[in-house]
Design a protein around this nucleic acid. Structure first.
Length: 275
DNA sequence: GCAAGCCTGACC
DNA sequence: GGTCAGGCTTGC
């Protein structure tokens, strides 16, 4: 599932493969995943930005001024792959962006259609970025702690709230909580400054490592070249319900918090309110 | 039936 | 305003 490391891997791949190239044609196969409208034909890919799990493709028509943007959310099963134009369309392909040079095109597919692509003005794209909290890799320990203050919900839900910290999804939330030994049900605002610093460090460490492995492919995620990520083998709790904790040997448990499955070690991870 | 991200809306 | 349940979607 695409979270920050997967989107960052995609951004880097796009930077390598499509930066500076010109859009020759856009074919919208399924209009329902499309939002907004803007003419992209003849535009050059000028810059690739990411905040949290959102990817922004900045396009310029003449010179350096950004004239339009494509804001891409991968949702749960979204894929953006550079494909030979002649290759048959895979099912659930919603959008094809043909590049002027070469024989390839960018294809967006998303079986579950939780993802979307928005063609819009740079101002609108900026507003979307502004609606997110600080990016999880850039948030400072001070900002992190400040955002925790007064929050009465579970830390697990807090980590998933993109307005408070952008980029953490279910997999890396569980991994960071395990790493920092904090129980997913711990009350966010009740976490001590010392543990908050530990969690901040754990979040960034887990995300950085996952980027180094080109992300996690639990089921659907693939990068721009169609390759899966390699971090799955490094997951310590996510998807390991019933297995032995790699730190203490206790059985990993799975519970539901804020409607999301949460994997944790009942022995190593403390909720901080008791004892 | 369950998983996911994200939006909407009900409730405090 | 904050918090969380529900619904969307489809392949396993």
């Amino acid at each position: 599932m695409p979270e920050l490391p997967e989107v960052e891997t995609l951004r880097r791949g796009l930077e390598r493969r499509v930066l500076g190239r010109t859009i020759a044609a856009v074919e919208i196969v399924r209009p329902s995943v499309m939002r907004g409208r803007a003419s992209l034909i003849g535009c050059r890919v000028a810059r690739l930005r990411r905040k949290g799990k959102i990817l922004q493709v900045e396009l310029s028509r003449n010179g350096n001024e950004i004239s339009a943007c494509a804001v891409i959310r991968l949702g749960m099963t979204g894929q953006l792959v550079l494909t030979a134009r002649a290759a048959p369309l895979k099912p659930h392909t919603h959008l094809c962006i043909r590049l002027a040079e070469g024989r390839k095109e960018l294809r967006f597919r998303d079986p579950r259609r939780f993802g979307s692509v928005r063609f819009c003005t740079p101002e609108e794209a900026e507003r979307i970025f502004q609606s997110l909290g600080p990016d999880a890799l850039e948030i400072t320990p001070e900002e992190f702690e400040r955002n925790l203050q007064g929050r009465r919900g579970a830390i697990k839900g807090w980590l998933l709230n993109q307005k408070l910290i952008a980029g953490v999804g279910n997999i890396y939330a569980d991994e960071a909580l395990f790493e920092s030994r904090i129980h997913p049900r711990a009350i966010a605002g009740g976490i001590s400054p010392e543990r908050a610093r530990r969690l901040h460090e754990a979040v960034q460490k887990v995300l950085q490592r996952a980027i180094e492995c080109q992300g996690t492919s639990f089921r659907d995620y693939i990068d721009i070249e169609g390759r899966p990520g390699n971090f799955k083998a490094r997951l310590l709790v996510y998807g390991r319900e019933g297995d032995a904790c790699l730190r203490c040997g206790a059985r990993i448990r799975r519970i539901v918090i804020c409607g999301r499955s949460s994997h944790f070690c009942p022995n190593c991870q403390l909720d901080g309110s008791s004892s």
